[in-house]
Design a protein around this nucleic acid. Structure first.
Lengths: 220, 220
DNA sequence: CATATATCAATTGTAAGCATTTTACTGTAT
DNA sequence: ATACAGTAAAATGCTTACAATTGATATATG
């Protein structure tokens, strides 16, 4: 019998990881609402594990800013007010702009091709008004740039901030527009031209524009 | 008997917090060396607590990038190579530059005065070659700017990155020069003039300069 | 009746114990 | 002598149990 060479590495999935992912998802999609008080025991029962992995997950979620712990008292899901977007996007824009700059020396043809095809998929999703897919593909696009930049500090910070962006999207605070498609094209073009200054500026704008667009909505 | 009005709030200090702070300190100052394997039980005994708060602390330290956990196998202190400084400072510079921009609308006379006096203390420490004090005061200075900017996302990221800077200092990868004193003065001046663009540039430079200075050292 | 105090329930933080996986060692066979 | 297998020891992840705070309710007191 031929031994399968591509056997999946038996990745150990810990209860803590499962709990963390599930809780984060619940907070992002609103299952656990902003301001809601969280009870260790309840969550443990709901997820079929003991309190320990739950507590560990909550501590990680606190670092990420999804919950706030009051030692000895309680743990609350953080609020999502309209200021969140104003606080969140500037640092994300700055880090993404920096990523674009840092990516330039590491660019490859494959990377450019991947950015191109990803942006095409993004365009398709926007045109068909599949905004949730568009959001995820937009994340992919920017994540590629960060990956090319190859900076672990930036990567972990951006991942965390992106999770908050996803949460804001579920709260209807984030809007995706067709303008992003063209900006992405410019970003790819400028990366190829190795124009660090301009690509950083466009990248920053690509993110900050969402703030203005949000504030120009009727209800805001 | 007069009741002391300034009695310290009975802040509850948990075993986890103590463990976290101590372990972080040990990693930063080199007591726990890069690459060293960490044993839950040993650390628990050393700190006089059970494994639970130790494990929780290690998980937080992993998020901060001070240790790397291999689930089921082991936990290691992360390495500190000379590339660390090249990876660490650009995002920190970007976030500090952004902080300076964002601080401008919230500036007060008290804040400016505090920045001034802090920079005086910094200068004093540099002149007397008390470089460790200088590092801490330099941190204070930049922390004030971040506080004024009043952005919780930036604050938590900068705090974490600053801890890494401290670690690099202990590894002789960070050098403080007199030039910082003058740059700080410029930063204060530009903040008062509300010159967002220039202050961001100077702030960025203030941090990135350390990369060049490090690479121009004889041994690097 | 309002305020203060005491007691109780609930919840959090910590410790101890168990089970599974990993690692190290030892013995055996080639 | 080296490589491999099997077993023993140790370390991790999780569960369970305990201790210490907090908040609330009820009772006492001015």
């Amino acid at each position: 019998m031929p031994i399968p060479t591509n056997h999946a590495k038996t990745i150990r999935v810990t209860a803590k990881e499962n709990a963390f992912n599930q809780l984060q998802q619940w907070i992002i999609d609103g299952t656990l609402q902003a301001g809601e008080k969280l009870n260790d025991t309840e969550l443990a029962i709901a997820l079929g594990v003991s309190r320990t992995p739950i507590r560990e997950s909550l501590q990680l979620l606190e670092v990420q800013g999804f919950v706030k712990m009051f030692p000895g008292k309680a743990t609350q899901v953080t609020e999502v007010d309209r200021n969140s977007i104003t606080e969140l996007l500037p640092p994300l824009a700055a880090l993404q702009a920096l990523s674009a700059e840092l990516a330039i020396p590491h660019l490859t043809d494959e990377a450019i091709a991947l950015l191109d095809s990803t942006n095409e998929r993004f365009a398709e999703a926007v045109y068909t008004k599949d905004y949730f897919s568009a959001l995820k593909i937009d994340e992919e696009f920017h994540r590629i740039v960060v990956d090319i930049a190859n900076n672990s500090y930036i990567l972990s910070m951006v991942e965390s901030l992106q999770a908050h962006v996803r949460r804001l999207f579920f709260h209807n605070s984030i809007v995706l527009t067709e303008q992003s498609i063209e900006e992405h094209r410019q970003i790819i073009q400028l990366l190829q031209e190795r124009d660090a200054l301009t690509v950083a500026a466009i990248m920053r704008n690509n993110w900050l524009r969402a703030i203005d667009e949000f504030h120009s909505l009727p209800s805001n």
